[in-house]
Structures are given as structure tokens and as C-alpha cells.
Design a protein around this nucleic acid. Structure first.
Length: 113
DNA sequence: TACTTGACTGGAA
DNA sequence: GTTCCAGCCAAGT
């Protein structure tokens, strides 16, 4: 295929769209799943895809492994996090509490712990 | 073809 | 708890 990324982009957006409201996952987790499905990719790729095509999906539910976000979008993400009541850690800058909010593909949507 | 860049990660200091 | 550094994959120059 000429457009290497096209397939991958769709897979990324589809996956991000499945993240339940109030929960979050990391670039690395998505990258791992996408690698099984498409045989390619990595955490940085997911980030690149989100930066270019993430406008139509809840991109703020995808955070770095430490729960933080790139400076560029941090302030905008914070608004969504608070609006969805995603568990945060009171640090500066604020980070998502992945211990409580963490989600991974295939997980059954159910009562929060 | 080779080098640089990026919404990243994990281990070491 | 933090910061630094090497590894990582694909795209852009």
C-alpha cells in the first residue's frame, strides 16, 4: 500500500473512541494493542497520529505513561478531565491517576472500583 | 540515502 | 520523589 499510515490512523482513532468516559489509557498501551492488530507502530507513532488526526476523538483520554500530557495540550486536556471527573493527582502540573482511571482495550465497561 | 523530529517509554542516577 | 539518557517507529527534509 502506498499510504502506510491510513490503516494505522483508522485503527488508532477506532481504539481511542472506545475509551469510556471518565477513564484514560496511555500511548504505550494503545501502541501495544495496535501492534497486534496492524503489526506496526509504537508509542511515539500514536502520539504523532493523535497530533494530526486526533481532533475527532476524545484525545484527552490518552495520556503519557506517567499520567501527564504534552505541554501543548495540557491546559485543554485538564478542562475535559475535570468535566468527566477523571481521577487526578494533585501535582503540578496535574496528572491523571492511572491507578484509578486506567483502562485497556477489551476491558469490560462496568462499575468503577 | 542520511539526518532530524515528535501529543513517547523505561531504566538509571 | 525527580531529571537524564538511550531506544524506539514512521514521516518529513
Amino acid at each position: 500500500m502506498r499510504e502506510v499510515a491510513e490503516d494505522y490512523v483508522e485503527a488508532v482513532l477506532d481504539l481511542v473512541g472506545q475509551i469510556p468516559s471518565g477513564r484514560a489509557t496511555t500511548y504505550g498501551v494503545l501502541a501495544e494493542t495496535l501492534r497486534e492488530r496492524t503489526g506496526r507502530g509504537g508509542a511515539r507513532l500514536v502520539g504523532t497520529v493523535m497530533a494530526r488526526y486526533g481532533g475527532g476523538v476524545p484525545w484527552w483520554r490518552v495520556v503519557r505513561a506517567d499520567g501527564g500530557m504534552a505541554e501543548e495540550v495540557r491546559s485543554r486536556a485538564l478542562v475535559h478531565w475535570r468535566a468527566e471527573s477523571i481521577p487526578l493527582r494533585r501535582t503540578d502540573p496535574p496528572r491523571v491517576d492511572l491507578y484509578r482511571a486506567g483502562w485497556e482495550p477489551g476491558e469490560m465497561p462496568g462499575p468503577s472500583r
